[in-house]
Simulated assay, not measured.
Amino acid sequence: MPRPVVVDSLGVGVATGAYGISFGAVATASGLDVWQACALSLLVFTGASQFAFVGVVAAGGAPLAGSATAILLGSRNLFYGLSLAPLLRLRGSRRLTAAQVVIDESTAMALGQREEADKRTAFYLTGWSIFVLWNLTTLVGALAGAAIGDPRIFGLDAAVGAAFLALLWPWLAAWPQRLAAVVGAAAATGLVPLTAAGVPIILGGAVAVVVGLVATRRAPEVVPDSGADGQVPG
C-alpha cells in the first residue's frame, strides 16, 4: 500500500469531512432536528443533494420537492458507479456497501491513480474516511445549531443560500457554466411568485441543465479547481 496514496486519500477525507459541521448547523437552522440532520448524512451522503434538500425546506417547500431536487443533483453518482464497477468488481451486498461512498472525491482519487491496486485503495480510503468524518461533524454541527435556537442570531438563516453558492462557485469557470447559472437563477426567481415553494428550484435547475448542455457543445469543457463540489461529498 503506497504511502503517498494513503496520505493523499486521508488528507482529502479530513479536509472534506470537516465541512459536515456546516451542514449540521445549516440543517437545524432550516427546521430539521438533530437526528433528521444526522439521518440525511448517514443515508443520503452527498453534500450537494443534502444542501439542496435543506434549502428547499428552509424556503418553505414540501419535503417531496426537496427530495426531487436532491435526487436530480445526486443522479450523477450513478455514472460514477458505472465507471468504477469494472475496477472494483464487487457482487451482492459488497456492491451495495461500496455504492454508499461513490462520490466525487472517492471517484476522482481512484481514477487518478495508475495502478489498479492503488485505485481501489484510494477509493476506499477516501470514501470511508469522508463518510465517517462527515457524519461525526454533522452531529457536532447539528448540536451546535440546535443549541443556538434562533438561527438569525449568527446569520444561519442565510447560511443555506451561502453554502450552496459556495458549492457551485468552482464550476463557474467559463461562459457556458456562467450562462447556465444566470439563466437558471433568473428562471427560478421569476417562478417564485407563481409556484409553490421548492418548485422554482426544480424548474430553474432543469432550465439551467438544458442551457448548459447547449452551451457546452459550443465550447471546450472546463475542469474546476481541486475540491469538486466545494469541499463537500458529492
Rank of each mutant, 00 (worst) to 15 (best):
V209D: 06
V34A: 10
W171Q: 15
E116K: 06
P200S: 00
V57T: 07
V14T: 08
V210T: 08
D8H: 13
A65G: 04
S9W: 04
V214L: 11
F154E: 08
G61S: 02
E105T: 06
Q177D: 08
A196G: 11
V207S: 09
V101W: 09
V209K: 08
V12Y: 00
V5S: 00
V54L: 01
L43G: 05
L42N: 08
L64G: 02
L43T: 01
S9I: 02
G13M: 00
D104L: 14
A228R: 05
V101G: 08
G55E: 06
D229E: 12
A25Y: 13
V56H: 00
R218N: 10
V7R: 15
F23I: 01
A147N: 13
G190T: 08
Q50H: 09
S129E: 05
L125F: 03
G13E: 02
L168I: 15
L32S: 03
L87F: 06
A25E: 13
P233T: 12
S83V: 15
A186K: 11
A187E: 10
A162D: 14
G212L: 08
L125S: 02
Q50V: 07
W128E: 05
G155I: 09
P220T: 02
D8N: 14
A186L: 13
V132Q: 02
G149D: 12
Y80A: 10
Y19L: 09
D157P: 13
V232I: 12
W35I: 14
V6E: 07
L156T: 10
L165S: 12
T216G: 07
V211W: 08
T138W: 06
G141L: 10
P2M: 02
T216C: 10
P176F: 10
V183R: 09
L73S: 08
I201Q: 14
D157H: 12
G47Y: 12
G112I: 04
T28R: 02
G60Y: 09
L87C: 05
